[in-house]
Design a protein around this nucleic acid. Structure first.
Length: 213
DNA sequence: CGTTTTTGACCGGCGC
DNA sequence: GCGCCGGTCAAAAACG
């Protein structure tokens, strides 16, 4: 039930995620993705370019915000990364080209006219984790679960519980490597991440205070 | 008691 | 047209 709240992140300060635990350096992420997903959740070409981002950065250089949303009004996402260990991240840049609709692996098809469907940005993470649910700071309500073809693991569907926000995410475990969870976000949150703001607010206040000297 | 999960039904797109 | 498949709905159950 309380899926995500179950993991309260105590750290008052955001430790910049160390570079090592992230699997950005994985050999051929695109091949990994395409081979392990019989029906692609993910645009593999996009993932390849996305992976180029953080691999060389020191942790402090990583633009998590831009990485995750490119447009979230700010700092919502940092914390999520700290709570994820061993994240292989594959971001799909918002919008155009290869990212139009889900299941684009099955050749063309439902192109984009699911009754006026604006191209929504979709972002996918691969996370090596025992938990299917990552604490990304947002509150999610599960609205469905489906068995997917060629995988023993079901896919779960979540919606952001914020009233005005219709961001969705799908969570599925890789058939090939059960230790890896693929989380696909669809849409952009139109509200701040409460948990992150909680964490950040005291920090900001302290910084403002110190800045006076 | 309000909120979230569960789960079968339903729906629309696509291939044959 | 039919069946498959993925995504969503919604009623009931479960949870805190």
């Amino acid at each position: 039930m309380d899926s995500q709240d179950g993991t309260p992140p105590p750290p008052p300060v955001l430790p910049p995620p160390p570079a090592s635990p992230y699997l950005f350096a994985l050999p051929t992420p695109s091949s990994l993705l395409s081979s392990s997903l019989s029906h692609p959740l993910i645009d593999t070409s996009a993932s390849a370019q996305a992976l180029a981002l953080p691999s060389s950065s020191s942790s402090s250089d990583i633009d998590w915000v831009g990485l995750l949303s490119g447009q979230l009004s700010g700092l919502h996402e940092n914390k999520s990364m700290t709570s994820m260990e061993n994240a292989l991240m594959t971001t799909m840049l918002p919008g155009h080209g290869g990212v139009e609709d889900r299941s684009e692996g099955q050749v063309k098809k439902k192109v984009m006219n699911r009754t006026r469907r604006p191209a929504r940005p979709r972002i996918a993470f691969q996370t090596r984790s025992a938990d299917d649910i990552l604490d990304d700071g947002y509150r999610w309500r599960k609205y469905g679960q489906k068995a997917v073809k060629n995988s023993v693991h079901p896919r779960s569907y979540y919606r952001c519980t914020h009233h005005t926000c219709n961001v969705k995410k799908q969570v599925q475990r890789l058939a090939k490597d059960t230790s890896i969870v693929v989380t696909t976000y669809e849409g952009i949150h139109n509200h701040p991440c409460e948990k992150l703001m909680e964490t950040l607010t005291p920090l900001l206040k302290q910084m403002q205070f110190l800045a006076r000297f």
